[in-house]
Amino acid sequence: YPDFDLEALNQDSGLSWNYMDLGEVVQGEDLEGYDALVLLLPRFSAESVSTDRRLSLVARFGVGYDTVDQQVCTENGIVLTNTPDAVRRPVAVSIMTLMMALTGKIFIKDRITRGGDQTWSQRSGQMGVGLVGKTLGSLGFGGIAGEMFRMASVYDMRHIAHDPFRNPEMNQDLEVEMVELEQLFSESDILCINCDLNTETEKIVDSRLLSLMKPTAFLINTARGPIVNQKDLTEFLQQGKIAGAGLDVLEKEPPDLDDPILALENVILAP
């Protein structure tokens, strides 16, 4: 990540650091002699604890803690932190990008154009959907959702959200209507997943909630893949019960090559 500013680390004469390729799961022997670990993608589990017990801090670059075993950290006296402010704008930008690509049918138009005269006649049926007057919904109303709504304010959309754990001190500058979970799914034209992954939210977006969505609605998930029951979502997309989805997270990453969601034209995927 060449854009990361590491100057503060370089200027501290009492600090030495280096980059490590830790693989999928951090191994404890790789952390011997280290006091702290800044972690992005690899998982931290019981086998990640250094044998010399020197490690005292795991600082996760991101919002959630789902890639770190919190109990392991507690048992070994390791402080665990995250950086919610660091990813608010980038994730919100990803949401807006997926929203514009889905409603504008950009990928479908791209395929029509590349097909030349064999597909050119299809262009009039893929004009896309305007955003003015549409309802933008969010499951979760934290920092990323707030940034998303601020960026979307120029489109004259109605904004709604559901979050039983919302912090009333956050997003006070926004005019977002808080609604019940079922109302969120039934009224949103673009529904974005912006909540943490935990035992209460795992697979919370299932066939029951998806059945409440409009057939013209789009689902966007940039949070965590397991929040959505991917089998249910795939079936709804295959049957045209919702218009499309934008996903930069999946239940299994990387996905199996025969995963049926990879074959759907009404889905935009990103790693």
Rank of each mutant, 00 (worst) to 15 (best):
S188T: 14
L264W: 13
K105P: 02
M148K: 00
G104Y: 00
G116R: 10
K109M: 03
T113D: 00
V179S: 03
D30E: 14
K203E: 12
E47V: 06
D258P: 01
E265T: 14
K134N: 05
I227K: 04
T113Q: 15
N171V: 10
V38G: 00
L6V: 14
K241P: 08
L269Q: 02
A270I: 07
L57N: 08
L257Y: 11
V87C: 08
G14E: 06
G143C: 13
S48C: 04
A36L: 07
Q118A: 15
R150C: 02
L191N: 04
D258H: 12
K241Q: 11
E7C: 03
Y155G: 06
P168Q: 13
M213Y: 08
K105M: 12
V38Q: 02
Y1V: 05
V72E: 09
D259H: 14
G28W: 03
R89K: 13
L41V: 14
A92G: 13
E265P: 10
D5M: 03
G146E: 05
F61K: 08
V267T: 09
E235T: 15
S48Q: 05
G28K: 08
I261Y: 05
I78S: 03
D5Q: 13
L40N: 13
P168Y: 04
I220K: 09
T199C: 10
V68W: 03
W120Q: 12
I160E: 01
S211T: 09
Q71P: 01
N171H: 07
R54V: 02
F4A: 15
G125L: 12
T67I: 05
R224D: 07
D3W: 08
L212N: 00
I204D: 02
Q118M: 11
D5V: 07
A243W: 09
M151C: 01
V267Q: 05
F44S: 12
R158A: 15
D110L: 03
R166V: 15
V72T: 14
D21T: 00
P164G: 04
L39Y: 13
L262S: 10
G225I: 12
T119E: 15
Q118K: 14
D206M: 11
T135W: 02
